[in-house]
Simulated assay, not measured.
Amino acid sequence: MDLNKENRENKYLRAKERVEEIKKFYTSLILYSLFIGFLAALNYYTNEWRYMWFLWAAFGWGIALFFQAAKAFRWNPFLSKDWEEKKMKEFLEEEDKKNQWN
């Protein structure tokens, strides 16, 4: 019974952690949109699109935002905690098999 309760608590904590990651992503997306919009307006005001320098900031920050989204929405299995747990179990099982033969 304790194991069941502990398992539910672990699932709850992982779900809470994932929700926090998604909230951070959306917060970053809103800040990105506002700040890049501000930079675009400033760029237009200063030189009327003769040189769109704000795109450098949009591109750089956009790459970071993409990786944050990949982590939050689990697009890359190597960034998730589940992958880490599966690998840990796999390595432990390998060690158990080695120990059985010795």
Results as ranks from 00 to 15, higher is better:
residue 19 V to P: 03
residue 15 A to S: 11
residue 88 M to Q: 09
residue 43 N to A: 04
residue 91 F to E: 15
residue 1 M to F: 08
residue 38 F to G: 12
residue 80 S to P: 01
residue 44 Y to D: 14
residue 9 E to W: 05
residue 45 Y to C: 03
residue 15 A to C: 00
residue 52 M to D: 08
residue 63 I to E: 01
residue 82 D to G: 11
residue 59 F to W: 10
residue 34 L to W: 04
residue 74 R to E: 12
residue 38 F to V: 02
residue 4 N to F: 05
residue 11 K to E: 13
residue 94 E to C: 09
residue 3 L to V: 14
residue 86 K to M: 11
residue 79 L to P: 02
residue 44 Y to I: 10
residue 49 W to E: 14
residue 96 D to Y: 14
residue 72 A to L: 05
residue 20 E to W: 13
residue 81 K to D: 13
residue 3 L to G: 07
residue 73 F to Y: 15
residue 102 N to A: 04
residue 30 I to V: 15
residue 6 E to A: 15
residue 50 R to N: 14
residue 58 A to Y: 00
residue 49 W to P: 05
residue 74 R to S: 08
residue 52 M to L: 08
residue 48 E to G: 09
residue 29 L to I: 07
residue 63 I to P: 01
residue 94 E to I: 09
residue 68 Q to W: 02
residue 16 K to W: 10
residue 35 F to H: 03
residue 55 L to P: 06
residue 5 K to C: 10
residue 55 L to Y: 07
residue 61 W to P: 01
residue 67 F to C: 00
residue 51 Y to D: 07
residue 26 Y to E: 09
residue 10 N to K: 11
residue 9 E to V: 13
residue 30 I to L: 14
residue 61 W to A: 06
residue 40 A to D: 05
residue 34 L to M: 11
residue 51 Y to H: 08
residue 23 K to H: 11
residue 59 F to Y: 15
residue 84 E to N: 08
residue 71 K to M: 02
residue 10 N to C: 09
residue 86 K to Y: 09
residue 10 N to Y: 03
residue 101 W to N: 10
residue 62 G to L: 03
residue 8 R to A: 13
residue 61 W to D: 00
residue 10 N to F: 03
residue 100 Q to G: 05
residue 44 Y to A: 12
residue 48 E to H: 15
residue 21 E to R: 13
residue 92 L to W: 09
residue 43 N to G: 07
residue 26 Y to A: 04
residue 66 F to L: 11
residue 2 D to A: 15
residue 96 D to S: 14
residue 57 A to H: 10
residue 19 V to M: 11
residue 4 N to D: 13
residue 94 E to P: 04
residue 54 F to D: 03
residue 67 F to Q: 01
residue 61 W to Q: 00
residue 91 F to C: 04
residue 98 K to L: 14
residue 33 S to Y: 07
residue 101 W to Y: 15
residue 27 T to E: 11
residue 76 N to P: 07
residue 15 A to Y: 10
residue 40 A to N: 03
residue 47 N to K: 05
residue 25 F to E: 07
residue 67 F to P: 00
residue 65 L to E: 04
residue 93 E to L: 13
residue 2 D to T: 03
residue 73 F to C: 10
residue 102 N to F: 13
residue 78 F to M: 07
residue 26 Y to W: 15
residue 30 I to P: 08
residue 99 N to G: 03
residue 56 W to T: 06
residue 7 N to Q: 15
residue 87 K to M: 11
residue 23 K to D: 14
residue 94 E to Y: 10
residue 3 L to R: 14
residue 89 K to M: 13
residue 77 P to G: 03
residue 69 A to Y: 07
residue 3 L to A: 14
residue 76 N to A: 07
residue 50 R to M: 06
residue 18 R to Y: 02
residue 1 M to Q: 15
residue 17 E to P: 05
residue 65 L to R: 06
residue 74 R to Q: 11
residue 75 W to H: 09
residue 95 E to Q: 10
residue 7 N to M: 10
residue 17 E to N: 14
residue 102 N to W: 12
residue 87 K to R: 12
residue 57 A to L: 08
residue 74 R to L: 00
residue 32 Y to K: 00
residue 69 A to N: 01
residue 98 K to R: 15
residue 63 I to G: 04
residue 37 G to M: 00
residue 65 L to T: 06
residue 72 A to N: 01
